[in-house]
Design a protein around this nucleic acid. Sequence first.
DNA 1: TCATAATAGATGTATAGCACAACTATTGCT
DNA 2: AGCAATAGTTGTGCTATACATCTATTATGA
Lengths: 158, 158
Amino acid sequence: MNYEQQILHWVNRLGFLTRKEIVARFGAAGFEVSPEEWALLLLLNEGGAKAPSEIAEITSKDRTTVTRLVDGMVRKGLVNRIPNESDRRRMVIELSASGHSLFAKLAPIAKGLIGDAMGGISDDDAQITLAVLKRMTSSLQGADLSSSSKKETQDAKL
Amino acid sequence: MNYEQQILHWVNRLGFLTRKEIVARFGAAGFEVSPEEWALLLLLNEGGAKAPSEIAEITSKDRTTVTRLVDGMVRKGLVNRIPNESDRRRMVIELSASGHSLFAKLAPIAKGLIGDAMGGISDDDAQITLAVLKRMTSSLQGADLSSSSKKETQDAKL
DNA sequence: TCATAATAGATGTATAGCACAACTATTGCT
DNA sequence: AGCAATAGTTGTGCTATACATCTATTATGA
């Protein structure tokens, strides 16, 4: 129970630090953007428009949490809520023009942070780390004891 | 701006998932323990008693945050606040007997989680990942743009 | 075809974690 | 002695989160 333990521990510490640091750097550059907002900007920029429930699924958060996050970002004009015509329950969240433009301004700041964080780490090691983190994430999502997304993953058990 | 970016992104997702999952598993076993409480139990168990300010430094959290966390754990009887006789401003936080005993009960649960998360990952890769995470953490702590612990790290600049 | 179930999302409400500012108590400095 | 520094605590407020519940809409099947 030691170095393994520590991976998850360092994941936590580093995650906490990163969130704090990126907010600080955005703030220093005059942008008041929370880590969640940044994550959603990034997700939408890279992956295109997404339904709230997709966002919830991807981020392992509750639907209501996504609703509030999107609320705030709609208020700030960063994203648009587009109703789906063929199924009027559905929404799609897309980056607005000003969301794109904000993203473009924040990206270099994030890049700077990444550069600082990754200093002295080889590409090979970085890639291994990335693969390990992805794998751990999907393992945990599968082995999920807690709520949501159980139907698909736990059918076998029932 | 891609796979590097993603390391920090996956750190965040995995961290969030892990926190949720460990609380769920503790809860399922009948223990109401928050991730922060667990982290402190672990820290004190492995590293021995520590001053609040040390804890704050290690975890990159504010002193006041540590005060509240300790408050709660003292209330629950998990840790003791020991005044330092030679410097009466100082405190030391140590695990109580019941804190030790709780730790012993939680450790196997945490181990189970770690086992699930680490499934199919080689020791080599795990160790590389651990080293990368540690290094990234200390890089960020050094390059800190935000508050605290500046005196030591930024003397050179002034 | 309609009644019931399922789905997508939003709201009401409550909680935890966090930190800034300000305060108290104590110690160090000169 | 007197002022600055340090350790910790309190007052306060905000953000992220989710559970329970609600509405609107679509799917199902008897």
